[in-house]
């Protein structure tokens, strides 16, 4: 049970600061932040909602175990989907 960050990430550091398990890092050769799949708990037992996807400003940058976006297009900006995909 773990979330993952994909290449839509803009490296803003916000998720790293709020992760309760210290599972988010950016390695030297990483193009974006990564979630340690072994230590991520999806914040279960700590918070009602996963913290990284509660602060992430970029739609579709964080996905769940099935690869589904935690914040789908339009959910953060309020833009209609055809415009949200352009951002």
């Amino acid at each position: 049970m773990a979330l993952a960050i994909i290449d839509k990430c803009v490296n803003c550091h916000a998720c790293q600061m709020v992760c309760p398990t210290g599972s988010i890092r950016k390695g030297k050769n990483d193009l974006h932040f990564m979630i340690n799949q072994d230590t991520c708990t999806e914040c279960e037992g700590s918070y009602d909602n996963p913290q990284c996807s509660s602060i992430c400003p970029v739609e579709c940058a964080i996905v769940d175990g099935d690869g589904e976006p935690m914040n789908p297009y339009g959910s953060l900006t309020g833009l209609p989907i055809e415009k949200a995909v352009l951002v």
């Binding site: 803009v10 490296n11 803003c12 550091h13 916000a14 600061m17 602060i55 400003p57 970029v58 953060l76």
Partner: peptide, 14 residues
Amino acid sequence: APACNIQCNYCNRK
């Protein structure tokens, strides 16, 4: 200071 705690409609974080 890259992280933000709010979203403004005049800002694009990318």
